[in-house]
Design a protein around this nucleic acid. Structure first.
Ligand SMILES: NC(=O)c1ccc[n+]([C@@H]2O[C@H](COP(=O)([O-])OP(=O)(O)OC[C@H]3O[C@@H](n4cnc5c(N)ncnc54)[C@H](O)[C@@H]3O)[C@@H](O)[C@H]2O)c1
Ligand SMILES: NC(=O)c1ccc[n+]([C@@H]2O[C@H](COP(=O)([O-])OP(=O)(O)OC[C@H]3O[C@@H](n4cnc5c(N)ncnc54)[C@H](O)[C@@H]3O)[C@@H](O)[C@H]2O)c1
Lengths: 206, 206
DNA sequence: ATGTTAATGTTAGTTATTTCACATATTTAT
DNA sequence: ATAAATATGTGAAATAACTAACATTAACAT
């Protein structure tokens, strides 16, 4: 019933609705949403139906209650604690990104094997890798963002899984499969670019 | 015939095959590939068929020729010049990333509206935003990576499109639709994380 | 030479995802 | 009250994506 891209779609609904909310709108129709997101209005209604979001046969949907419901579905009642493993260029960019906290995601620490990167006193401390397993267990961390060099990616993933992390957002170019212990979502920026380049070049020749 | 995720799958094949190549393998069977990527072997064969990659009824596929063919499909004969717009945390991480060039992607310049970020002398210069349109036209830039604050994202995208850029990889949280002039691929890291969190939390309760 | 085996290439079938279409409910107008 | 209008909610239909199955072909063994 609930399918692969549906949560990502729900997040898009959320963004749009929050925007409409700031513009002062109180209610919304399925085809307002579908128009801007370029999907069909029936898909919007079906998604809403699947998640128990309900509207009024004429008056459309109440924005406040959709948003409340989406947050409920996503489990936004508690702040999600996340760690960053590998505090190089991209790891640090993510650690310092201000966009997470307003979505209820808190980066609580970074980890690196390079002692020169360690700085325990900071707002968001960078700790040595050795302290990771204990930290994860003690603070009950479930989610990690992995930004280590690809050579150590497999080893790092195993370590995270063994420490009790249940989900890893993987920025290394190696595509990992999810296992029973750990769900891996891969972001391959190079591939995204190559894909884009392909589309653009293709259009040129058509 | 050619469907949405197919190019991304082709890139995954490429990565795997290059790996096998370094291990000394000369040929490969469709189910070697399908096993590690957790898809069916018939999908591999179908993809190959669609792209004119052909094997031998017994001996499988020749790795070198698949790789050559994939590069041909992707148009890897010439280096792709790419610019980065918005050279903040994530923009600079991308600008300095060493992983692009070996895939034939060259970051040729960054652009920012903050004069204190401008540094024209560097290996990869950071130029002021004002110079972007001219630069894009002169150097025939087709692809841009957009890492500006979300407030200026729409304006920046319009400017890129007007300057002649045909494809934008968008890191801002605003989801843009592609138009006739410009193809936009959106990477929303927050959404990827939220999606992962949802999956992990869901599993816990099941 | 002939049979056996092992892989591709391709068609048919299955599953997943999205859209269509319309009955149903609710508001608004008369 | 009744009718008209309008948007939801939902089963059926369509489309897209993937997999199973197998006929075909090439290599190898006997
Ligand atoms: N920078 C980018 O724009 C970019 C883009 C796409 C993918 N990536 C991928 O992200 C990863 C990180 O890239 P980067 O550019 O930030 O590299 P980087 O070299 O700047 O950072 C890597 C960090 O990992 C640390 N590290 C090394 N071994 C470690 C270990 N065993 N455990 C923990 N930390 C360890 C290093 O000390 C360093 O701080 C790479 O796999 C890269 O391919 C980066
Ligand atoms: N940092 C991350 O980890 C991260 C993660 C996900 C998404 N993003 C998104 O990426 C974008 C950039 O994030 P960041 O953390 O690098 O922010 P940042 O503030 O570090 O960098 C933004 C840069 O854009 C420049 N800029 C401002 N206006 C500009 C304009 N009109 N034209 C060109 N440049 C301009 C600024 O001078 C600055 O250098 C944001 O939209 C953010 O939401 C960032």
């Amino acid at each position: 019933m609930t399918n692969k891209g549906q949560i990502l779609r729900l997040l898009n609904y959320k963004n749009l609705l929050k925007h409409l909310q700031t513009l002062g709108f109180k209610k919304v129709f399925s085809d307002n949403i579908s128009d801007t997101l370029e999907i069909s209005s029936s898909l919007v209604r079906k998604d809403f139906g699947n998640f128990g979001i309900t509207g009024n046969r004429k008056g459309g949907y109440d924005i406040d209650s959709i948003l409340a419901k989406i947050d409920e579905i996503l489990g936004k009642d508690e702040i999600q604690k996340v760690i960053v493993v590998g505090t190089g260029r991209i790891g640090q960019a993510l650690m310092n990104y201000q966009g997470f906290i307003k979505e209820g995601i808190q980066i609580v620490a970074g980890f690196d094997n390079d002692f020169s990167k360690v700085s325990e006193g900071e707002d968001i401390p960078i700790l040595h890798l050795d302290k990771l397993p204990e930290f994860v267990k003690e603070k009950n961390i479930k989610i990690a963002i992995m930004c280590v060099p690809q050579l150590v990616a497999k080893h790092t993933l195993d370590m995270l899984a063994n420490s009790g992390v249940g989900g890893v957002l993987n920025f290394t170019p190696i595509k990992f499969q999810s296992s029973n212990e750990v769900t891996v979502n891969n972001i391959n920026i190079v591939h995204e670019l190559e894909n884009l380049i392909y589309i653009v070049n293709k259009q040129k020749t058509t």
